[in-house]
């Protein structure tokens, strides 16, 4: 029984709920999951360039199967584009007043919007910088992963821009998990929302540390000393092959 004042066939009425829930879900799966994978792969460089190369090789097994680009488009680029498009529309529907209501939750609400905007601008810059989808940058070479990454990260602007981009993306994700749990009705009372806040905070801090540490490592690595040590199928570097400079 539909309400007389509401036209149930209007597009906004029919798909509004679905679009908003897909926006909420897409932030976690697949975009958030991809962020975690990406941060983990980056952080693997802390265990040495060989370990990083091994991690990259695991991903590029998809390239050998010829499905890496479709997978990237389908599970990374399109979901991010959808999330960003709907997110930009959500951003435009809000009028934050953090001066009049300076509560932590309200500030978090505003920061979630700012970090979303900064993150999408950063992602576009990052794609131009190292990825095929926007040509013109330093194409990342999956076969010389560490060396290629170190080269790409060598410019002076990269440090602050990447640090800001990573922190914004990570905050947006961690706070997004918190609101996701409310949106879907998992955490209801203030107690459960406080506890989930701690969990999301820890996830955010861990991801931020992983991202920043990997960035610092790429910035400080001596590229001239980099070689490509042979890696066994299990990812173990063969004895004596580790020749990385720090």
């Amino acid at each position: 029984m539909a309400d007389a004042a509401v036209d149930p066939n209007a597009l906004g009425e029919r798909y509004h709920f679905l679009i908003r829930r897909l926006h909420s879900l897409s932030g976690i799966v697949p975009v958030g999951v991809f962020l975690c994978v990406h941060m983990s792969v980056n952080a693997s460089v802390l265990a040495g360039p060989a370990r990083f190369q091994f991690a990259v090789d695991q991903i590029h097994k998809l390239a050998n199967l010829g499905i890496l680009k479709p997978v990237e488009v389908l599970f990374i680029f399109l979901p991010i584009a959808f999330h960003a498009y709907v997110g930009a529309w959500i951003w435009l529907t809000g009028k934050p007043e953090i001066m009049r209501y300076p509560h932590l939750d309200n500030i978090r609400y505003a920061v979630q919007r700012w970090t979303g905007i900064i993150a999408i601008v950063f992602i576009l810059a990052h794609l131009w910088h190292v990825h095929w989808i926007i040509p013109g940058g330093t194409e990342f070479d999956a076969h010389a992963a560490a060396e290629s990454a170190v080269n790409a990260m060598a410019s002076l602007w990269v440090g602050p821009v990447y640090a800001l981009g990573v922190l914004c993306a990570v905050f947006h994700f961690a706070n997004g998990i918190w609101t996701f749990l409310i949106t879907w009705g998992v955490t209801i009372g203030p107690g459960s929302q406080r506890r989930s806040g701690w969990v999301c905070g820890i996830i955010g801090v861990v991801l931020a540390l992983m991202g920043l540490a990997a960035l610092a490592k790429f910035k400080s690595m001596d590229v001239s000393a980099l070689q490509h040590p042979p890696v066994t199928a299990t990812g173990k570097v063969e004895p004596g092959a580790q020749t990385t400079g720090h």
């Binding site: 509401v6 149930p8 209007a10 906004g12 009425e13 029919r14 509004h16 709920f17 908003r20 829930r21 959500i90 529907t93 809000g94 934050p96 209501y101 509560h103 939750d105 309200n106 978090r108 609400y109 505003a110 609101t179 409310i182 949106t183």
Partner: peptide
């Protein structure tokens, strides 16, 4: 559940 419904909450909790 339509336009302007519950989903438009932004969790600012003011």
């Amino acid at each position: 559940m339509g336009d302007g419904g519950l989903t438009d909450c932004g969790n600012a909790q003011n």
